[in-house]
């Protein structure tokens, strides 16, 4: 079965954090402990949205040492593909869900002398579990957390009261901006930088750090790509002998799954490489949207990541 071992959970609690964000707590169905995890991990939540199967990744925000339950926070995106709206409007306490084991593509570098964290909006969630992990083992951290305004600054009050000066808050509508260049210059040697937030923030932080001379190995970022929408296209699956039509709001991976093809996947966000698929024939343009293939591999066109990437043109034949 693709996607690895699964965990069967029940929704124990749904909390409205603010106008945009809801928090969900999952506990195991048989009452056994859930596996511990490392700060920065995410899970993939499987949803049956009225016949449409959705699998969305969400960062775990609860204490990694707490095996009694997992917590995620979901920001509602009314313009998105529907996963977050489904979570907000249909997932209620007592409901049964299937989730993946925790996966981590945004782990702390445990050699670091200090962890410098930059969060934008809902990008705060992986840091919440990382900060709890550091709390157990005494690691130093400094957090800079920017949100649109005070009302949507989820968990900001709790972080501030628990960690004081180590937590710095910024509100866009009050004209506040993370003084990044200054923050970067005053870090001790051996500091690692982590950023999670919107794409614009990621690019800004990575560029500023590079310009300040930070080695790439000391800069960590997590970017989950929503599959994104596009034109309807079809793909022939040579091994399965099937042809699938990929809808505007569907990913190529989802279309394959809907056709009963057991295609491999893990992150479903273009980051992990698990769903990498060989392209046998391409008469048209591959629209690469992943961060896994190198620019050279993307240009070569011999591979595609069906969880996020699309196609426009006449014929696409895949080795699947």
């Amino acid at each position: 079965m693709s996607g690895g071992a699964k965990l069967e959970v029940t929704v124990a609690e749904v909390v409205e954090v603010n106008a945009l964000i809801k928090r969900f707590r999952f506990v195991s169905r048989d009452g056994a402990a859930l596996p511990a995890f490392s700060g920065g991990s995410h899970i993939v939540v499987e949803m049956d949205d009225h016949g449409v199967r959705r699998l969305n990744p969400y960062s775990l925000m609860s204490d990694p040492a707490d095996t009694s339950g997992y917590e995620i926070s979901v920001r509602r995106d009314d313009a998105g593909r529907g996963g977050s709206v489904f979570m907000h409007s249909h997932v209620t306490p007592g409901m049964r869900l299937t989730i993946s084991h925790p996966l981590n593509f945004f782990a702390l570098d445990t050699r670091a002398k200090k962890h410098l964290m930059i969060a934008g909006g809902i990008g705060i969630t992986p840091f919440l579990s990382q900060i709890k992990q550091l709390g157990h083992f005494g690691g130093r951290f400094e957090l800079h957390y920017a949100t649109r305004n005070r009302d949507v600054a989820a968990y900001a009050t709790g972080l501030k009261s628990a960690h004081g000066d180590r937590v710095n808050l910024y509100y866009d509508d009050e004209g506040q901006v993370v003084p990044l260049a200054e923050v970067l210059t005053r870090q001790p040697i051996g500091t690692h930088l982590y950023v999670c937030g919107p794409k614009g923030m990621l690019n800004w932080v990575r560029k500023t750090a590079a310009a300040a001379g930070w080695p790439a190995q000391s800069v960590h970022f997590e970017e989950f790509l929503a599959p994104g929408t596009g034109l309807v296209f079809s793909a022939q699956l040579a091994r399965s002998g099937k042809t699938v039509t990929v809808g505007t709001h569907q990913s190529l991976l989802e279309a394959m799954e809907a056709a009963g093809v057991d295609a491999p996947y893990l992150c479903r966000g273009g980051a992990c490489g698990q769903c990498e698929t060989n392209v046998i024939r391409c008469d048209g343009t591959l629209l690469h949207r992943d961060v896994w293939l190198s620019p050279a591999e993307q240009a070569e066109g011999a591979k595609i990541m069906p969880c996020v990437s699309r196609f426009e043109g006449k014929t696409l034949v895949l080795d699947r």
């Binding site: 690895g4 995890f37 996966l103």
Partner: peptide
């Protein structure tokens, strides 16, 4: 290495 980097908990 690519295979091992994708090794998951529980599997």
């Amino acid at each position: 290495l690519k295979f091992l980097l994708k090794l998951q908990q529980g599997s």
